Each structure stands twice: as C-alpha cells, then as structure tokens.
Simulated scan of single mutants.
Amino acid sequence: MRVVIARCAARYTGRLSAHLPLATRAIMVKADGSVLLHSDGGSYKPLNWMSPPCTMRELPPEPEAVERGVASVWVVQHQKSDDRLEIDLHEVISDTEHELGVDPGLIKDGVEAHLQELLADQVSLLGQGYTLVRREFPTAIGPVDIMARDGAGGSVAVEIKRRGEIDGVEQLTRYLELLNRDPLLAPVQGVFAAQEIKPQARVLAEDRGIRCVVLDYEAMRGSEDLSSRLF
C-alpha cells in the first residue's frame, strides 16, 4: 500500500461530478488498484475514491495549473466506465509504501456468523428456487459469505452484514468483479443482505445492479427453533 500525505485538490467526473478544494489529505493507493482520499475526520469513509479495475498515471501539470501551484497530477481512469478521478498535488508532505501481505479477512461477530448460518439453511428467503452452493465460498481476496444458484441456475454471491453500509457494498463489488472472470461462474449476480441497510448503501448497490435484501433475524431464529422441535 502507498500512503501519500499531500496538499491536494481533486475532481471526479463520470456517472457523477464532484470536486474537493485544496486541503491536506491522505491518499491511499492499494494493491488492488483502488485509490482513496481521506481527511482527518469522517471516520473510515473516504471523501472520494476510485474502485478497481482502474489505471493510474502521474502527469506533469499544464502551464495554467503550474501557476496555481500544482506540482503533479494523478489521473485515475476506470477501465469499464467513463469514471475519472484527477488529483492535483500541490505539495507532498510524506510518501511511503508498505507491503501488507495477504489479509485473513474480517472475522464475523456472533450475530453476523449466525445470520450466515441461518440464511444458508433458509436460502429460499432470497427467492423462489434458490439453492445453496456453499458457505464461505473461497476467492483470492477472501471468502464470499454465501454462493447460491437462483431458480434459473445462475450464480449468486451473497454478502451478509448486521448493518449494511457502503463499505459492505464495496466489498461485494470486489468479489463480483473477481468471480465474473471465471467462465464457469459468470455471470454472477450480487445480493447484499443485512438486518438494516443504510439508504446510501442501497442507492450504491442498486446503481451497481446489486439486489438488497433485509433480513429479519428474530423471524429466522424462530424458523430455526421450530424446525429443531420434535413436536
């Protein structure tokens, strides 16, 4: 991972347009190609970002930009859309790179782990004719919570959260991009399942063709309890 602390401004164009005025920020360039701009607030959410697959080029600034104090320009272009992130670097305060290695992935808490188990047993909650392929379906970047097939036999990747937020949608997006490279699985649909899904996460998911499903944990537990009884 490359981490750059710099005074910078940024412009995002494509499906939406956004602008970040000049300020000191942390820019993260991850091994998967993603580029994220962070401020010193706002919790874990970046101010703006580009998800892979994308390419990044470092270019000299135009003469007009030099007059404004721009030292270099990063151009990050998505490979499957017109989305483009341009970062004007005025001053680089720190530029470091670190090899983080393979991450074991997030360890689910009790509720999320139980939700996964319950949904695997009650996979028909996703739709009529759905069948389970397996839980913890392995990929090169971590396991998908549930891999299933719909009534027509199509592949479906399911990401399960207790609270569905934007980072969960991003996680599922990365899984889908990888799984859809496998001709034995493609096309793979995505389902984002959670007890509660934040409005921003729902908008992002639907924009990316990912279906959202709200899970009733208590009702699912009730079905589990009833099925375990003899009388």
Rank of each mutant, 00 (worst) to 15 (best):
M1T: 11
A6M: 05
Y12G: 04
G14C: 10
L16F: 12
S17P: 04
A18I: 07
A18H: 12
H19M: 11
P21K: 09
P21G: 13
T24Y: 13
R25K: 14
I27M: 07
A31C: 01
L36I: 00
H38I: 05
S43M: 15
W49E: 13
W49N: 12
M50Y: 02
P52D: 06
T55E: 14
E62Y: 15
E62R: 15
P63A: 10
R68I: 01
V70T: 04
V76A: 05
D83V: 03
E86L: 12
E86K: 13
H90Q: 15
S94N: 14
E99L: 05
D103F: 04
P104G: 02
A113V: 05
H114W: 11
L118R: 05
Q122F: 12
V123T: 10
V123G: 07
L126S: 04
Q128K: 14
T131P: 01
R135S: 09
E136P: 00
E136S: 04
F137A: 03
A140C: 11
A140T: 13
I141Y: 01
G142H: 06
P143V: 07
V144G: 01
M147K: 02
D150F: 05
E165T: 10
G168D: 03
E177M: 15
N180G: 08
P187L: 09
F192D: 01
F192G: 00
I197T: 01
P199L: 01
V203Y: 07
A205N: 06
E206Y: 12
G209E: 10
I210H: 01
R211N: 13
V214W: 10
D216C: 10
Y217N: 03
E218L: 07
M220E: 05
S228P: 00
S228R: 14
F231C: 09
